[in-house]
Structure formats: structure tokens, C-alpha cells
Design a protein around this nucleic acid. Structure first.
Length: 168
DNA sequence: GAATAGATCCGC
DNA sequence: CGGATCTATTCA
């Protein structure tokens, strides 16, 4: 079944963890999520919204179930899904996934967005009720491990990266 | 206005 | 390990 806003409105760490094994439907493609990271505005120096609301981070303060897509390093986009209630800045970064039909592994947020042609056009979109982009629970239950997040300098002691161990 | 660091990836 | 190459944010 398709995930509703309630799913995303929970604590970010729970959402990040339970998104592993869920299936993204995007423009007729289906990707199993294999890797996520949690970013929480309050008390997380690595989060873009750590220093408060800016034009770029405004989406994260909005309601759960919206996309947050940003451009980084001059070449790559990263896809996030906003979590928690409106007013609380937090999101889950989709770092890795697998295309089920093409059997392609996408390890890394930049590659994932490039493969799906995700750009800033897709920023701040409500995925609840969207036909183009939504996430489905197929009752997969992969084994999950927690590790430090990738590519950040602050907040490395937090084990907020979730990776599927079992093959799916 | 200028400087700089950045939730990345690829090739050497 | 450095380059590609844009942008949001910070500093003067």
C-alpha cells in the first residue's frame, strides 16, 4: 500500500529506518530503497536547516511528505523526503536504491538523481497522492544496520545512516 | 561584492 | 587525491 502522510510525520530516525525496503514509484520506474540518512534541524550540525530557516531550507520546515531536492558540488542533485510535523525542520536523504526491473544498483544520492532525472524542478513537491512520485510498502523486511553518515564533517558520531544488509 | 565550504562522483 | 563547477551563506 502507498504510504500516507502519517508515515512521514513520525520521528525522523524512525522514518529513515522504515523507509529501507520501501519501493519508490517514479515515472513508471520502481526502486527499492537500500540506503537512507536522517537530517534533523534541531541539534544536528550537519543538517542544512541547523542554522534556521533560509529560502533553501524552508521546505524542511513545512509539512511531511514533501520532497527536498538541492544542487550540490556544481554537478549533483540530492533527493530528500521531509519528515516530522510542520514547523520542525527534518528530512530523510535517499542515498541508495535498486531498480527492480533493470536490476541496476544506485549507490549514492547524486547517481540516484541523475538516473531518475531529478532536478530542482522536483523540489517542494507533495508526494502524498502524487501519481508521478510516491512510495509503496511491499512488506519487504530487510535487515538494517546503522552507521555514521557519509560526506559530512560535523555530527559524525551520530549513527543516522541506515543500510539494507540483506539482498532485495 | 568576494570568498569559501559543501549531505558527490570519477578518473588518475 | 584532485578536479569538475554551482550555489547558499558568510564576511567585508
Amino acid at each position: 500500500m502507498t504510504l500516507t502522510r502519517d508515515f512521514y510525520e513520525r520521528p525522523t530516525l524512525e522514518v529513515a529506518k522504515s523507509l529501507i525496503g520501501k519501493v519508490i514509484h517514479f515515472q513508471n520506474r520502481q526502486l527499492v530503497i537500500t540506503e537512507t540518512e536522517a537530517y534533523i534541524g534541531i541539534g544536528d550540525p550537519a543538517c542544512h536547516a541547523a542554522k534556521g530557516l533560509t529560502p533553501r531550507t524552508a521546505v524542511m520546515f513545512g509539512p511531511a511528505g514533501f520532497t527536498y531536492v538541492y544542487f550540490i558540488y556544481g554537478m549533483y542533485h540530492c533527493l530528500n523526503i521531509v519528515t516530522e510535523k510542520e514547523g520542525t525542520a527534518a528530512a530523510v536523504l535517499i542515498r541508495g536504491a535498486k531498480d527492480m526491473s533493470a536490476n541496476i544498483y544506485l549507490n549514492g544520492p547524486g547517481k540516484l538523481c541523475k538516473y531518475l532525472n531529478i532536478t530542482k524542478e522536483h523540489n517542494n513537491r507533495d508526494i502524498i497522492g502524487s501519481k508521478e512520485f510516491h512510495v509503496v510498502d511491499k512488506n519487504l523486511k530487510p535487515k538494517i544496520i546503522c552507521t555514521p553518515r557519509i560526506g559530512i564533517k560535523q555530527g559524525r558520531e551520530l549513527l543516522w545512516r541506515f543500510v539494507a544488509v540483506q539482498e532485495i
